[in-house]
C-alpha cells in the first residue's frame, strides 16, 4: 500500500501548518518524589488497594518464603524461567518433593495446552517498581518468557525494595526505556480485573486471578 502511504503523507504535509512547538513543562511529573522507605509503603498501599498480596522476605530467605507460600496453598507446580537470575536462585534453593518446579525452557508451541490448563502458578523477577501508583516493571524475554506472568492463575513476582522508582516517568528515564526497549516490557499493578458488568469490580477475568509480590527488604 505504498500509494496509500504517499497519499496520506502528502495530504498531511499539504495540510500541516507548521508552527512553533509549544514548550513542555514537566514539573508536575518531576516533583512526584519520595524517600526510599516511603516508596515501599506507597507501592504497597497502591497495589493492595487492587487486591495484590505481599510476602515479606530478606535477600537471603526469599526462596524459602516462596516455597512456604506454595506449601501453604498446596500448589501442585510452579513454572519459572531457569535462565533468569531469580529463577536460577529459586531452583538452587528448592527442596525436593511438594510443589514441582517446572522450567519454561522450550517454545510455547510445545506445551501451550498444558500451560493453559495444568500450570498452577508462574514465578518471575522484576526490573523495578513504581511508588507513585503502585506497580511492577517487567521485561520478559528469553530468560523469562512473556506468558509466565499472564497465563497461570497465580503470578508470583520477586521485587527488591531497592529497585523502586518514584513514578513511571522516573522509571522510563532510569531504565533507559526511552532510548531502546526489548520486544516486550510492561507494568503490572494487580491481578487481572474488570468492571464491565455494572461497574462492579471482579478479579481474574483473563489473566492471573492472584498477584503475589515477594518483597525483598534490601534497603540499607
Amino acid at each position: 500500500m505504498t500509494d496509500a502511504r504517499t497519499a496520506i503523507l502528502g495530504r498531511l504535509r499539504a495540510g500541516g501548518g507548521e508552527g512553533p512547538l509549544p514548550p513542555l513543562d514537566t514539573a508536575v511529573m518531576e516533583r512526584r518524589q519520595w524517600p526510599p522507605a516511603e516508596r515501599v509503603a506507597r507501592l504497597r498501599r497502591g497495589m493492595e488497594a487492587v487486591h495484590t498480596e505481599f510476602l515479606d522476605a530478606t535477600p537471603a530467605d526469599w526462596p524459602a518464603v516462596v516455597r512456604a507460600f506454595c506449601d501453604r496453598e498446596a500448589l501442585p507446580n510452579l513454572m519459572f524461567g531457569p535462565a533468569s537470575e531469580a529463577g536460577a536462585a529459586l531452583a538452587a534453593a528448592w527442596p525436593a518433593g511438594g510443589t514441582q518446579l517446572l522450567p519454561y525452557d522450550r517454545p510455547v508451541e510445545a506445551f501451550k495446552e498444558e500451560l493453559f490448563t495444568t500450570v498452577a502458578a508462574g514465578f518471575t523477577g522484576t526490573v523495578g517498581g513504581v511508588a507513585e501508583t503502585g506497580g511492577l516493571l517487567l521485561m520478559p524475554g528469553p530468560a523469562e518468557p512473556r506468558l509466565l506472568s499472564l497465563v497461570p492463575p497465580i503470578h508470583l513476582a520477586l521485587l527488591r525494595a531497592s529497585t523502586l522508582q518514584d513514578s513511571l516517568w522516573h522509571a522510563v528515564k532510569a531504565l533507559g526505556w526511552g532510548r531502546s526497549l526489548p520486544p516486550n516490557a510492561l507494568l503490572i499493578s494487580g491481578p487481572s480485573k474488570t468492571a464491565d458488568i455494572e461497574q462492579t469490580l471482579a478479579y481474574g477475568v483473563h489473566g492471573p486471578k492472584r498477584l503475589i509480590v515477594v518483597l525483598v527488604h534490601d534497603l540499607a
Binding site: G46, V50, Y104, D105, R106, P107, V108, V130, E132, T133, G134, G135, G141, P142, P145, R146, L147, L168, W177, L181, P182, P183, N184, A185, L186, L187, I188, S189, G190, P191, S192, K193, A195, G207
Partner: peptide
Amino acid sequence: ATGQAVSTYFNLITGPRGADEKDG
C-alpha cells in the same frame, strides 16, 4: 477514564518474538 491512578497492565510492544524468545 475510569478514575484509576494506574491500569492493571500497561503493555509496551516493540517487536515480535525475538530470536531466543520462547513465546510471543
